[in-house]
C-alpha cells in the first residue's frame, strides 16, 4: 500500500492467548476509518480466523512468529497476516467450505468467513515455507442502519 497514511506492525508468538489481542488491536486501528460497529466485528472475525489458522495449521501447536501489518489509505483497510509455518498444499481446496486438514472438531469454515466478511482476500502460500493472507475492506457507507 504505497500511499498509506497510517500503518501498524505487530509480531507475536503463535499462542492462542494472543488471538484476542490481535483481533482487538486490528479493529481499534481500523476504527480510524468510519467503519460501523458491525463492520469492525467482521474485521475481528476475519483476523481471528487468519491468526487461528497460523497457530493451528501453520505451526501445528509448535511456537513460531506471526506478523500482522495493517495499513489504511484511500479509505480502505489492508491487513496482512503471515506465518512461516508449513504452508498450504492446495489453496483452492483450502477455500472449500467443510474442507479441513485438522483431525477433530474443525468445520472448515474459517476462510469462508474471511471471504464473506472482507472485500478482498489474497492468499500466498508456499509449502514448507509459510502462508500470507492479505485482506482488504472499505467502510460501506451505503448500508442502511436500523
Amino acid at each position: 500500500m504505497g500511499s498509506s497514511i497510517n500503518q501498524l506492525t505487530m509480531e507475536f508468538p503463535s499462542k492462542a492467548v494472543n488471538i484476542g489481542f490481535a483481533r482487538t488491536a486490528v479493529a481499534m486501528f481500523a476504527a480510524q476509518l468510519d467503519f460501523t460497529l458491525d463492520e469492525l466485528d467482521e474485521i475481528k472475525i476475519a483476523v481471528s480466523e487468519a491468526v487461528s489458522n497460523s497457530v493451528i495449521h501453520g505451526y501445528k501447536g509448535t511456537e513460531g512468529m506471526i506478523t500482522i501489518i495493517c495499513a489504511v489509505g484511500e479509505g480502505a483497510l489492508e491487513v496482512q497476516i503471515k506465518d512461516e509455518g508449513v504452508g498450504i498444499d492446495d489453496i483452492e481446496k483450502a477455500f472449500e467450505p467443510a474442507f479441513t486438514t485438522a483431525p477433530k472438531e474443525r468445520m472448515g469454515l474459517g476462510l469462508v468467513f474471511v471471504k464473506e466478511y472482507m472485500d478482498e482476500l489474497i492468499i500466498d502460500s508456499v509449502s514448507g515455507r509459510g502462508t500470507s493472507l492479505i485482506m482488504k475492506k472499505s467502510p460501506c457507507h451505503n448500508k442502511v442502519e436500523v
Binding site: I45, S48, E49, S52, L109, F113
Partner: peptide, 10 residues
C-alpha cells in the same frame, strides 16, 4: 461477545 470457527467447532 465474540465467536469464531473455534467456538463453532466446539
Amino acid at each position: 461477545e465474540f465467536i469464531d470457527s473455534s467456538g463453532l467447532g466446539m
